[in-house]
Amino acid sequence: MKTVTRMSGQSGLEGELSDSLAVEPKRKKAGFWKVFKQQKYLYMMSIPFVLLVIIFNYLPLWGWSMAFQSYKPGIPFWEQEWVGFQHFIQLFSDERFYLVLRNTLAMSLMSLAIGFVFPILFAVLLNEVRLSIFKRTVQTITYLPHFVSWVVVAGIVTKMLSIDGGIINELLIGLGIVDKPVQFMAKGEYFWSIVVVSDLWKEMGWNAIIFLAAIAGIDPQLYEAAKVDGAGRWRRIWHVTLPGIRPTILVLLILSIGHLTSIGFEKQFLLGNSLVVDYSEVLDLYALNYGIGLGRFSYGTAIGIFNSVVSIILLFLANGIFKRFGNQSVM
């Protein structure tokens, strides 16, 4: 939330920041120690947090060494057998891995596209609602599904799409669109859409909160000025609201691009079945079944490393592109 408020409406301050950054390299060496001395209390205050990050985020990276060993639990580190890149070679030569990667990327790209457009649209529209009670009620109702467990959601979705009295099929038949119930859950080609749509239903309201907050941070004077200039509702949305939340949108977009390969496996696992497995298995599930599930800690770690490396590359790519063309970045 902090970044959001900073990003929105304080572009003046940001300009100053980048100015000072641009100047700094010239007198880097002398400057650093000087600044350090001046700000030693600030540095000291940050030590606990830096330590926290080092302990919980950097030290565990030590475990990556497992990927290059044939790791067996219970044996001291120096007695483990080193195997080099064997696990990576095995991973990249497994056909299933590519299938799984395809599913992961397809589903995450789809939900990135849809799961981004709808919450923004929803937030903007909700913001235009005048009646405050109605607005709040709708907002509360739409974000509640976020707290419902996927187990329950999967149950509801399966029941709704069932051919045995499922409401969607009843509706389609009632409207005369199809003459025989459609087996939604048994068709692989529908699976991605089912996951994305149910994810949208569950998370739309929740994801809209952050955009609503960003909209709330827009200076009302801008709206008033636009009104005076004769801008109608659409114009105001287009010229004030959307540009106002643009930094928020870009930051969130860049961050979620970094998470493209790690989409979890809950929904796929719970909604999937043996008929659609070629479309439902994702990277995390593969890592579970073929890594930890079989006690192949090293193989699982190799998958994890692959995942992290791809994430970092994607993050920097997205960041670079947006920096270049949109003057907006997270780093």
Binding site: G155, T158, K159, S162, I163, D164, Q183, M185, A186, N273, S274, L275
Partner: peptide, 10 residues
């Protein structure tokens, strides 16, 4: 027809 789709509780 739901044989291979249904979950245990269903």
């Amino acid at each position: 027809p739901e044989s291979f789709v249904q979950k245990y509780d269903q």
